[in-house]
C-alpha cells in the first residue's frame, strides 16, 4: 500500500505542525482508497483535545471523528487516516502511538522543530498490532 499526497496537502500539514509547535497537531487525511494506493484529496485540521501535555500527546474525540466521516461521505470520500506532529522528535511512531493505533488507517507523522518540519513519514499498524509497516509516500 502507498499513500499519494499532493504538495498542497503536505504543505498544509507542515503549516499546521509549525503553528502548533511546541504542541502536537493532528488532523484527518481524506480521499479515496483505490486498492493499491490511497489517494489523499484533502486534509482537515482537528482540535488536539488532550487535556494536558499537548507537547507530547494528542487526542481527536469520537464526535469529531464521526463528523469527519460524515463530511467525507457527503463528498463521496473516506477518512483514510490521520496525521500528527512529533515536536523535537523523529517521525517514527512511539509505543504510545502503537497502543492507540487503529488498523488500516495511514498515520502520517511530521517531525517538527523550532526551525520547521524536518521529516514526514507514513505508517500503518500491522494486523496483529505488534508494530508498524512504513508506507510509501507518493508525492
Amino acid at each position: 500500500m502507498a499513500l499519494k499526497i499532493g504538495q498542497g496537502d503536505l504543505r498544509n500539514i507542515h503549516r499546521h505542525a509549525e503553528e502548533a509547535y511546541p504542541e502536537e497537531c493532528a488532523g484527518a487525511l481524506v480521499g479515496m482508497d483505490v486498492g493499491e494506493v490511497k489517494i489523499v484529496v484533502d486534509v482537515w485540521r482537528a482540535e488536539n483535545t488532550h487535556e494536558e501535555e499537548r507537547s507530547r500527546r494528542f487526542l481527536i474525540r469520537p464526535e469529531q471523528v464521526r463528523e469527519f466521516e460524515e463530511r467525507a461521505r457527503e463528498r463521496d470520500m473516506d477518512v483514510l487516516g490521520f496525521y500528527h506532529s512529533h515536536p523535537d522528535h523523529p517521525a517514527e511512531p512511539s509505543e504510545y502511538d502503537r497502543e492507540h493505533a487503529w488498523p488500516y488507517y495511514s498515520y502520517v507523522i511530521a517531525s517538527v522543530t523550532q526551525e520547521g518540519v524536518k521529516d514526514v513519514k507514513s505508517w500503518v499498524l500491522r494486523d496483529d498490532r505488534s508494530g508498524y509497516e512504513q508506507e510509501e509516500l507518493v508525492r
Binding site: R57, V65, H89, S94, W102
Partner: peptide, 12 residues
Amino acid sequence: LSIIPSIAGGES
C-alpha cells in the same frame, strides 16, 4: 450501536 474511533497518540 456504532463503534466510533477516537484517535490518540504522541511522541513518547
